[in-house]
Design a protein around this nucleic acid. Structure first.
Lengths: 348, 348
DNA sequence: TTGAAAGCGCTAACAT
DNA sequence: ATGTTAGCGCTTTCAA
């Protein structure tokens, strides 16, 4: 790598002291206008840039945040990343992006690697393994070292830190309400990770709504697909539709929503004529499905943006034991063509 | 932020000199085994981690690479990111991820921000705006400063640097060949960014194949959808199918492939019975389409992995004017259900 | 075998 | 208005 221009070089070249150069470049009032101009002009001409590591070392601030997510290929995480990126960029922060691949061991490695002054704080959605085993000590360690963390999506309630989350139970409750309002009477629930707290909450909201609206709660039409590859979804779901009179389905992700649509169509149902589908996560699949799928939007970008704002605020206030906040992002039903329309759409 | 443990602290605590601690922690042979053990034990107990910025300042190496992509929401870029991430992680590198949002100005900003010692090198796919206007001077500036760059996907042939690319013309050529082999005789071509070099090459390969296989080349069935929102794709494509006897289509991306499938189905075609589709980019949409779509895989993860390896190699060899390499990633046809099957599948 | 000192690039308190 | 110096945390040369 080519040698970079430093203030020392400039000082020597212009026959002034290093500190004069430093002050001039920082536009200090204690430097004469003329020398300032001279120095600034030189710096500009030769494209001087203050060395990042020297500054970070001095300031004990890197203006860099770490984003730790389970998997960038999942649209929701890419959306969250996008939200974070926008805010970070606006506020002059860089992002170091890391992927846990749903492995606790990888998370530990990453936290270890980054808690050495590389970054000022973390935005994290824990790995599946971590969430299921509730192994949060590595997060706690990092918190104890004084790093601010903002958790999102899969949130350990055991950890005392800032959080950005959605109301999963409310989201499914609203989805059931909409299905009921558009005429569904036998609503199924399909999940893909029933050990995840968020999945449990989603199911809870579903059950609550069934009760509230006096709809039948039938275990045969509550299916969990954990451990089943998405290629097998259709096969796995066929019996449920064959053996039950289902007219509405809620799924905890898009791929499952698509699968159930295909199965229903194969069995002769018409969507949304006599079969409605609402899927969690307003991603790219729903928009391209046939018919386009009504979804529960978790507003990934908004989540990311909020998380980034919260984290950067914490970093910059830099106080010992702050009052941690939990921000709630409202979910929305994004109406498309897998559900009938209903005029009164103000679920709250 | 809490104060971190430094070698100075350890030195004081154990009543040895700073340099002894440094050497002990680096397992230097010039330190007595007993003192080494003592120091290492202490460091371990109190979770000492060498300060990243101090090391980077000293070594003029950050073990960090920048990834600059147009948009993380596009699956292909998320795939490339994934490939980069895996290799980088393996080789002990961090990744700073930046998004240009297809804007040249954002690219310039980002390069400016990162070329100050934050990172050791770049992996870049230029923004649309940049590619179309062939405005590459900001990349050249960074190269001139001595930063290694690996370009992928959209490649400026004007720039002298390492590159990882696919053979776009060969890819479409093979796609046409497969369609011909499975009985298609009137093959359409739909693109979405006809100003992009890669799109031009794809079209060239298509035309070349038509010629080679003596298939009709009809301008009415070569459509470009630049500037048209994906929601309008179906409407925009309907006339072409209505007014022509088309039995095969190649599209330059997945969303367009899905759209043409829907239009064809609406017009009564059966896929792949009398209508075949091959789309560029083996992403998530193709797998969930009805029918599942045959695609041209660009092997995003492989591209990313190769780019990362190449970049890190350049960083670590650190020589003035290396012989830049251009690596070619082979594309593949991923056979699904939007094309008929054909036994002899060895296109080369 | 251990330690003192210089230096990476920068800032800032403290002279001059 | 400008310069000297110490120090951020670390490595490394040189001296003891």
């Amino acid at each position: 790598m080519k040698k970079k221009l430093t203030i020392k070089d400039i000082a020597k070249e212009l026959s002034v002291s290093i500190s004069t150069v430093s002050k001039a470049l920082n536009d200090s009032h204690e430097i004469a206008e003329t020398t300032k101009k001279r120095i600034q002009a030189y710096a500009k001409e030769f494209n001087y840039k203050p060395n990042f590591n020297a500054l970070s070392l001095k300031n004990k601030k890197t203006k860099t945040i770490a984003v730790l997510i389970p998997n960038m290929l999942k649209y929701i995480y890419a959306q969250v990343f996008n939200g974070i990126e926008q805010v970070a960029n606006e506020l002059g922060y860089k992002i170091i992006t890391c992927v846990s691949n749903e492995k606790t061991s990888k998370e530990i490695e990453i936290l270890e690697m980054l808690s050495n002054g590389s970054i000022d704080g973390f935005i994290i959605s824990p790995a599946l393994e971590t969430s299921i085993n509730k192994e949060y000590s590595h997060f706690q360690d990092v918190l104890d070292e004084g790093f601010p963390i903002v958790m999102f999506d899969r949130i350990p309630k055991e950890l005392d830190c800032d959080k950005v989350m959605i109301k999963d139970h409310k989201a499914t409750f609203n989805a059931v309400e909409h299905l009921k309002n558009t005429g569904c009477t036998n609503i199924a629930f399909i999940s893909t990770n029933n050990k995840l707290t968020s999945t449990k909450k989603r199911k809870k909201g579903y059950l609550k709504a069934l009760e509230e609206f006096k709809l039948p709660a039938n275990k045969d039409i509550m299916v969990d697909l954990t451990e089943i590859n998405y290629k097998e979804y259709e096969r796995a779901l066929t019996p449920m539709l064959e053996n039950n009179q289902i007219d509405g389905v809620i799924t905890t992700n898009e791929a499952t929503g698509i699968a159930i649509q295909k199965v229903a169509q194969k069995l002769g149902y018409s969507i949304p004529g006599n079969f409605s589908v609402i899927a969690f996560s307003n991603g790219i699949l729903a928009r391209h499905a046939s018919p386009q799928m009504t979804t529960i939007s978790q507003h990934g970008e908004k989540m990311g943006a909020k998380a980034a704002k919260l984290l950067i605020q914490r970093i910059e206030e830099d106080i010992e034991n702050p009052d941690y906040e939990t921000k709630i992002i409202k979910t929305d039903l994004v109406m498309r063509n897998s559900t009938k329309s209903f005029l009164k759409l103000n679920y709250k």
